[in-house]
Write a protein that binds this DNA or RNA. Structure first.
Length: 259
DNA sequence: AAAGGATTCAACCGCCTTAGT
DNA sequence: CACTAAGGCGGTTGAATCCTT
């Protein structure tokens, strides 16, 4: 079944917003808030779809939006967070007051991507000149597990861990499950970059482990609490397979560290 | 001054998730 | 549990602007 379009496009305006439209949207939201984006344009008298109004408000009209160039601090924050999280722009933007996900994404694509790449290369060069001994690293690959495995069944089933370093916890579709990531069991050992850990530690307080959806991090130097497990879950009808997207996070960290 | 290539960023698109029924 | 509506997100586009020749 083909899903109906999110809004009726016929007769609705697209393209750049005029000052008058902005004014109407701002006034309406200041007066009524935005409990229902889809109904908003009709009530406000705008010939726009709800999504367009939402985007305009979130990315441009909100009073707390910061304009102007990104500071060096903001740049560094973006680069560090991107190293840890990948293209999770809304999460990254959430840690940078006044910046929107769209801003961060655009800024990354136009300014930071190349800089991050260059920094990474410099880091790698410095590292390789320090270390004469060759270290072979077997990169962790995504693993596929069947939900029919005994350890996956049931609520709040927690695996014994051989090594707390390698415990990853996530909540998947209401099932709070810990996945043992010990080297011999599921995946390669997680090696955390201390600088990344320290940096993230400052950005996420304890309470945030349970907010932002189920997204959270642990910084006791021994655990990653994975938001990522929910990201790439793949299911098929018969086998209910899924992959461990945590490997992506781990891989990013390993890659940064260039062991 | 003009042409055209490069860059920027607002806006759109389509997919995914969540909440409600 | 299935279905639908709505919100939210990341990827992409294209017009406007800037820069170089």
């Amino acid at each position: 079944m083909v899903r109906a379009p999110c809004c009726e496009k016929m007769g609705l305006k697209k393209g750049p917003w005029t000052h008058q439209e902005d004014r109407i949207l701002i006034d309406y939201i200041n007066l009524h808030g935005h409990p229902n984006w889809r109904a908003l344009p009709k009530h406000a008298g705008l010939l726009r779809c709800g999504k367009s109004c939402r985007l305009r408000w979130i990315n441009y009209l909100r009073p707390d939006i910061k304009r102007g160039n990104f500071s060096r601090e903001e740049e560094d924050t973006i680069i560090q967070l991107h190293t840890a999280m990948g293209n999770r722009w809304s999460l990254i933007a959430g840690r940078i007051p006044g910046r929107t996900a769209n801003d961060v994404k655009n800024y990354w694509n136009t300014h930071l991507r190349s800089r991050a790449k260059q920094q990474k290369k410099e880091h790698q060069d410095a590292k390789s000149s320090e270390d004469h001994a060759m270290v072979t690293v077997i990169k962790p690959q995504p693993r596929t597990f069947s939900k029919t495995l005994s350890w996956f069944k049931g609520d709040n089933q927690i695996l014994e861990t051989h090594d707390d370093r390698n415990l990853i916890r996530s909540s998947t579709k209401g099932v709070d499950t810990n996945y043992n990531m010990s080297a011999g069991v599921i995946s390669s050992p997680i090696i955390l970059d201390d600088s990344v850990n320290e940096f993230l530690k400052e950005l996420f307080d304890e309470g945030e482990k349970s907010i932002d959806g189920e997204i959270g991090w642990s910084f006791d130097g021994s655990q990653i609490e994975g938001e990522a497990l929910n990201v790439v879950e793949q299911e098929d009808n018969e086998n209910s397979l899924f992959e461990f997207p945590t490997d992506e996070v781990i891989w990013n960290l390993l890659d940064t560290e260039q062991l």
